[in-house]
Structure formats: C-alpha cells, structure tokens
Write a protein that binds this DNA or RNA. Structure first.
Lengths: 108, 108
DNA sequence: CATGATTTCCACAATGTGGAGGATATCGGC
DNA sequence: GCCGATATCCTCCACATTGTGGAAATCATG
C-alpha cells in the first residue's frame, strides 16, 4: 500500500483533485461541505493538509497577495504522485467493498 | 449525521452488509482482505466491532458450538438501524465527493 | 491602525493496529 | 468416560495515527 488514508484525509485529497492547482484552505473546506454535506471546521482542514504534506502526499506553495481586499497570502496545495497513488488505492478498495451492493447501500 | 465513521469502521460495516447474519471475526477479516486487497489483523477487526457495538451500530450474539471441528463459540455480528444509517451517510458522502471524477480516480 | 482573510498553535478525543495470551470446543487414546 | 493434544476463536492492552475545534497569530488592504 502506498500510504493508508483516514476517512477525512480521503475527503481532503478528493477535494484537491476536484479543485485543481488553485486549491487552498477555504475552497477545500467549501468543497467538502457542499459535496459531502457535512460540517467541517477550517482547522481540521489545515491540520490534515499539514500532515499530508509531511507524509509527502501533497505539496504547498505560498501564493501572491490577492489583488482584491485585505487578507493574508493564500497557501495553495496540490497533489503529489504519492498522494495520487494513495488516493487511488483507497478508492479502489472502497469500490471493491461496495461492488454489487450499491443499490442496497443507498436504501439502508 | 447519524454517527461519523472511520475508514476501517466503514470497511467492517460494509463487510457485515455483504456477509449477512452469519458474520463473525474470521469472515469479516477475510471479506475485507479479499475485496479491499489489504492486510487486516484479526484483533483490529475485533476491536472495531467491539467499539461499533458500544456505539450502538452493531449487535452481537454468541452462536451455538459448531458441529464440525473444535474451537470456541463464534460471536456473530449484525448491523443495527443506526449502523445502517451511518454507513449510508458515509457512502453517499463519498459518492458526492467522487461524482464525475470516477474515471480520473482509477488512473491516478 | 482598523479591519478582513487566512493560517497556525495546541490540546484532547476518537480511531487504527498488532502482539500476546486466554477461553472453549472437538478428537483420539487409554 | 477421562485427559491431554490440538484447532479455532476471542479478549486484553498498549501505543500510533487521525480527527476536531477553540483561540490566537499573521499579513495584506484601505
């Protein structure tokens, strides 16, 4: 296994895939809230991103100051190859476990 | 949310759904190993089942001695309504996060 | 320097994981 | 029938990793 992923780690990585290179704390949070319909505290997002970076699944870079209003510089995140592999493995594991019972799961 | 589920907790609950009422430690373990293609220690399975029972997601009952060979009595597990709801929510959250990018995920 | 946006710090709770050992059950020999 | 040998399954426990949110710090704009 590339790297085992926790449940929330998967969510965060999936959000990064969806969002692409511009992703940062707030957009990751919003994406998860919209798509997974669950409450997410912003610090949970940052903590997780930080740990994913330490494990080499993700990389971050500091963006330029935004042209619009005040605020600190954004820290953008994107997926590294190890993160991609880990996510794929977690996903295929899930697919394997749910294969053939998708219908039943939705009506549980 | 009914009850938040960890990654391995989801696997165990999915195994219970697949296996039906006869499920016990060894079959849960085997199911996850086969379907998710990952190593699973038997004690991880028991610990998780135990915690799921404490949270009211699962119920256990002691089975009759097996007619075949030696061994201790089996402890069978099955899903309770709260477990079913929790699993459904975890599953739909995942589906929401992966909607439209299933193809990309498999080739990451 | 007041304000707004974003990130960091920190502490604690919940989940993940595996080694070691205990508890039955059956079987075959005596 | 009783007795250990053996097979199967379960429990205990300790520690690592992941999940979570309150509070505060940082930094850019006007």
């Amino acid at each position: 296994m590339a790297q085992p992923l926790g449940e929330f780690e998967q969510m965060v990585l999936l959000a990064l895939v969806r969002l692409g290179p511009g992703a940062y704390g707030a957009t990751v949070r919003r994406e998860i809230q919209m798509r997974a319909r669950r409450e997410v505290s912003i610090s949970a997002v940052y903590t997780t991103l930080e740990r994913l970076e330490q494990k080499g699944l993700v990389r971050s870079r500091i963006g330029e100051p935004t042209p619009e209003r005040g605020g600190r510089r954004r820290r953008h995140f994107d997926l590294l190859p190890l993160g991609a592999r880990s996510l794929r493995e977690a996903y295929t594991a899930l697919v394997g476990m749910t294969a053939g019972i998708e219908g039943r799961l939705k009506t549980l």
